[in-house]
Design a protein around this nucleic acid. Sequence first.
DNA 1: TCTCTTATTGCAACTTCTTGCAATAGCATG
DNA 2: CATGCTATTGCAAGAAGTTGCAATAAGAGA
Lengths: 141, 141
Amino acid sequence: MSCADEYAPQLRARGYRMTSQRLAILHVLHHNGGHLSPVEVYEQARTELPSLTETTVYRTLEFLAGNGLVRPALTGSGHLVYEIARHEHHHLVCRNCGNEMEVEHELLKSMYETLEVESGYKLTDSHLTFFGLCPNCQKGD
Amino acid sequence: MSCADEYAPQLRARGYRMTSQRLAILHVLHHNGGHLSPVEVYEQARTELPSLTETTVYRTLEFLAGNGLVRPALTGSGHLVYEIARHEHHHLVCRNCGNEMEVEHELLKSMYETLEVESGYKLTDSHLTFFGLCPNCQKGD
DNA sequence: TCTCTTATTGCAACTTCTTGCAATAGCATG
DNA sequence: CATGCTATTGCAAGAAGTTGCAATAAGAGA
């Protein structure tokens, strides 16, 4: 199944369109798998679609994030990066070595529920990045 | 107790210096109480210290955040804003009206502990913003 | 109070990100 | 498959944020 076949219906169902720009960007994120900054996405996607502009990359990433096809995450330095949306998860980053691991959303579920009850809000999504020291860096201190 | 008396010792204890620039920035955040973007901080602090530059504001905010005197938070549009560090808390933002409430860190404590056990990481801080629909916007749908 | 060390700032150049608007191109419909 | 509506893009200008380096000024110690 190609990227186009997979993602186009999701957009159309919401009244949006699949374009060559969106496809190139999704393709890059899909294949890379990890986090990419907007500039990295731009440079890689441009190899398949040279006419792509940076403006479009920024707007598209925000658009795709808003529609759940990609997920934004924060780096330690406070910058936004994006990755293709797979299972819902968050990030745990080592303040010392930058090493990083995923945190299953499952682990936060009961906290999520408590939060809904206490606040009266209906939670839709979240932007969670945890910082700490990884097991290795704790040893070296 | 003035801002200088309150914050200077915290910096000196770590080998850093209190400067007029840092003081002006802390003063603005302290008095405002809420979230301010770097540009807002710059404009307000400049009224007390006209020689202040934007470069210094960006560097100082990052520095103060790193030392726990101010706290960064994410807006719905993915921008960093800062507020003076009071009790530890996170943010819950309405995707519809932008309304916002604080989430006590207390509420997340047990989840935090679980996370430390599961991951082996020693957590130091986190960057948590929750998005959802506030009680009002749920009615209007 | 003066000196000296070095943390901190300002400047200037640069990169990253945003916005308004006119031109383009998906795709639903006939 | 041709048409029309409008979502989407590119362009250009500008705002926001970053970096290297030389000048400045906290504040510790004499």
